[in-house]
């Protein structure tokens, strides 16, 4: 039930991120979500895109280093306490969140939260058991 996230090495200098987004834009790749995290002299750009294969191919050709990791895209009802409910489930089941970031679906009212956890299969089944909706790659295409 996981989706694929692309992580790209980004140098910590002006224009580094632009270089990446330019490549994606020029190749018509839609970025659904992007989060940056940084160490002192470099960072990692994490993104969910419309076409993982196309995106990684053009990034590689342009000389960017990347890796792919499984993450969970969880639908968060757009009501007070929506995220709280999800975190409560994960906490009760002892799932540690390594990092997370949010994005908004195009059509739906729901917000989505990307979760990186150590064991995505276990976390996905725990969430499903509690009736929490996860988006798969096909869902993402429609969102």
């Amino acid at each position: 039930m996981s989706i694929k996230q692309i992580s790209v090495f980004v140098e910590n200098k002006a224009g580094a991120l632009l270089a990446i987004t330019s490549v994606l834009a020029a190749n018509g790749i839609d970025m659904r979500a992007l989060a940056l995290s940084e160490a002192s002299d470099f960072g990692i750009g994490r993104m969910i895109v419309s076409d993982v294969y196309a995106a990684t191919t053009v990034l590689k050709d342009a000389g960017f280093i990347h890796s792919i990791s499984p993450v969970l895209a969880v639908a968060i009802p757009n009501v007070p306490g929506g995220l709280n409910e999800v975190l409560k489930v994960l906490s009760t089941e002892g799932v540690n969140v390594e990092y997370m970031y949010a994005f908004q679906g195009k059509a739906s009212e729901d917000a989505y939260m990307v979760f990186k956890v150590a064991d995505d299969i276990h976390a996905a089944s725990v969430l499903r058991d509690h009736g929490i909706r996860l988006a798969n790659e096909e869902d993402l295409a429609r969102l």
Partner: peptide, 18 residues
Amino acid sequence: EMTPEMFTDNLGEIAQRQ
């Protein structure tokens, strides 16, 4: 230079190598 073999999604691991 960063190499594809060295890169991971995990900042901690990279920082460790550094």
